[in-house]
Design a protein around this nucleic acid. Structure first.
Lengths: 258, 258
DNA sequence: TCAAAAGTGTTCTCTCTACACCCATGT
DNA sequence: ACATGGGTGTAGAGAGAACACTTTTGA
């Protein structure tokens, strides 16, 4: 079980009152999903995966470390999208109440109780969104998680604090960036059909795209490589598989090309 | 002389290691300007106007407070655009060197020396850009400024740390937002001619816009109110003045309408 | 009457959209 | 053969760019 690298006695190892919250997007079968851990408190509390920033690492590195710990995959596509800095972003009272209701000596609970002086302060949080291939992710619990699961965007559990709003802002940013930065491919497996890509776009923008026009628009971008056909056994024409165009011999993942 | 509200003995009043840097854009005579204070150190050091976040205020409020102190105007259009969080963002060595070279007991120098334990840490900084009507601004020095002046974008002085990069990112964000959010009017006086607005666009995007097409595009937005003509005394047709459309009777500044 | 600059209209092109048609595949 | 769904082409609508022309103003 990975550590979320929280403050310990050496809490000065981390920047105080500054956190990172990550909205991890995944895609499967026509739906966008978000990776949401359930907290160990009794009573169904859900919060975004997050963490803190070490004195010796950049905020981007911190976000990457936090996400690699939660997803088990490296080289994640990450985008900083907004800072949340309202004065109401303080956990002390809620934490004290929850800790009073959760007295058993669970590791995570103990840890939070020991670090309440730190965790109970007002936090400014930097929002990152991540795009991952859901099939590559094995969600990993930290010691403060009861579980970590994927939830469709339209069936999110009630989120603590402003984490619901953070997801909303992440989606707005994703919609703004998807076309411009050509990052949709980070949500798909290496090989995919045009229909899969189109359904992904429809899931992100929550609207239909005309089949033929979408194909033309995407192919005209000139970033896809057409591969072999995909025979599914269905009694219809087999679609081609495509791959995001890799530049020369670089064995890079898509987002590094941009 | 306003205070920049920095840490004092009661440094716990502020969030540590977290700062705000502001890129204040102004426009005049076909050029974009940025408000840049010169620091009191000998040797021409220029840094963005910035400050810190009180425990009792949101980051947006902090940015507003910082800017109101520097410009003397309220109701400033503000946009958070990015966080800068590299590990190299640490002033200690540079500060110690500068303080050693500036031994006279100036108020600002003393204050920095007294707060070096605080100011010398690594800082994560939230970037805001502001759009103001240059003619309304009376730049105000804080105790660590030697002067505060407007500089055209293409004649910026050498900036400390990563402040040059911050300005570049602010401009990129401004270019992305200008059309989408209809915020150009915050850079102009209340009444302006179509040519002034067009020259502003040309300054922001550093490219020409066709006169007639620009006029059509802007008027088709339906947000401008045509006022009386502006007689300049020049021997040519007098242009109309326009005003950003106010909604009903609200005496609001433009950005509040969005 | 003229030059300068503002206002306005027209055409051309390019892109996006909608509709149509053809092709491959397994039953 | 036929239903199903993928690939491709074409005509129409709309946005944007280029060009032209008219109007106003003060010398």
């Amino acid at each position: 079980m990975p550590d979320i690298h929280p403050p310990t006695d050496r809490s000065s190892e981390y920047i105080k009152q500054l956190s990172i919250d990550c909205v991890v997007f995944g895609y499967r079968d026509g739906k966008l999903y978000v990776l949401v851990p359930e907290l160990i408190f009794r009573g169904n509390y859900y919060g975004l995966p997050g963490g803190f920033i070490r004195q010796s690492e950049s905020i981007d590195d911190a976000a990457r470390r936090i996400l690699e710990g939660r997803t088990g995959i490296t080289n994640i596509y990450l985008e900083q999208f907004r800072v949340f800095g309202g004065t109401e972003r303080n956990n002390r009272k809620a934490l004290e109440r929850l800790l009073a209701l959760n007295t058993e000596g669970d590791g995570g609970i103990d840890w939070m109780r020991n670090n309440l002086h730190w965790l109970g302060e007002r936090f400014v949080s930097i929002g990152y969104y991540a795009l991952v291939d859901m099939h590559m992710v094995m969600p990993v619990k930290t010691k403060i998680d009861a579980s970590v699961n994927w939830y469709p965007l339209d069936e999110l559990p009630p989120m603590i604090m402003d984490h619901g709003e953070i997801i909303g802002e992440a989606l707005r940013s994703l919609r703004r960036d998807l076309d411009e930065k050509l990052i949709a491919f980070n949500l798909l497996p290496e090989k995919f059909t045009m229909k899969e890509l189109r359904l992904l776009y429809e899931a992100v923008y929550d609207r239909p795209f005309a089949r033929n026009n979408f194909q033309k628009k995407i192919l005209d971008l000139g970033v896809l490589e057409r591969l072999e056909k995909k025979y599914t056994g269905a009694s219809n024409r087999a679609p081609y598989l495509y791959r995001f165009q890799r530049i020369d011999t670089a064995p890079a993942s898509p987002h590094q090309l941009l």
